[in-house]
Amino acid sequence: MLTAGAAEAADFTVTSPDFAGGQVQQAQFAAGMGCIGKNLSPAITWANAPEGTKSFVVTLYDKDAPTGSGWWHWVAIDIPADVTALDGGAGSDISKMPAGAVTIANDAGQRGFGGACPPEGEVHDYTITVKALSVEKLPVPPEASPALVGFVSNMNTLASATISARGSR
């Protein structure tokens, strides 16, 4: 049986032209560590956030990274509720992020987007997640880890939408 909340959450969607066809585009690959890309964060659009949404969290995660815990490429919090898209490259140049948004350090220790760079011969799944939150400001410190952001945001999530693409070199 679906409840009204579940029906609303089912309508929340995220899309990215840079994940079209299920493949990470070359521009979203790192420009270093053996990868030849532009290190540009993907363009992302979301729609149909549930009523009561006060902010968004956007993440890009590689569950296949050979770390034992995956790899957080991008974590942005406190994106205002009236924002429904991030331009391509916004995470790479955080001055292009919406006013009020906060970028958390990724697993490379850099604030902003860090491009894909799987080991040669491996195919990795990269997942963009947008969470609609019930709070305007996520109660985490500026130096929070991506894992802490995930934990606290999950406690405040009204709905979540994901899109994935594969990348290899």
Rank of each mutant, 00 (worst) to 15 (best):
G167K: 10
K137G: 06
A7C: 03
Q23P: 00
S92K: 00
T67R: 01
A10I: 07
A31P: 06
A99C: 13
E136R: 03
L133Q: 03
A101V: 05
V152L: 06
A85Q: 13
F12C: 14
W46Q: 11
D107R: 03
S164T: 15
A65C: 04
M33P: 00
F113N: 07
A132M: 09
D18Q: 01
A85S: 13
W72Q: 08
A85H: 10
W74P: 01
S145T: 15
P17E: 13
P142K: 11
R169D: 11
P42A: 09
A85Y: 11
Y61Q: 09
L60C: 09
F29G: 00
T162S: 15
G89Y: 13
P119R: 01
S153D: 12
A99V: 15
A27Y: 09
V58P: 04
F151I: 14
I44Y: 02
G68Y: 01
Q23E: 14
M97Q: 05
T84C: 06
P141E: 11
D64K: 10
S16M: 08
A116V: 13
G70A: 12
A7T: 10
G21V: 01
A49C: 05
G21K: 00
E8G: 06
G70N: 11
P118N: 11
A116G: 05
P66M: 06
I94Y: 08
W72C: 02
F29N: 00
E120C: 08
A43Q: 15
K63E: 11
C117L: 01
T127E: 11
S69T: 14
L40I: 07
L138V: 04
V135G: 03
S160G: 13
Y126K: 08
S145E: 03
H124T: 04
C117F: 05
H73T: 07
T67D: 06
W74R: 03
V14R: 04
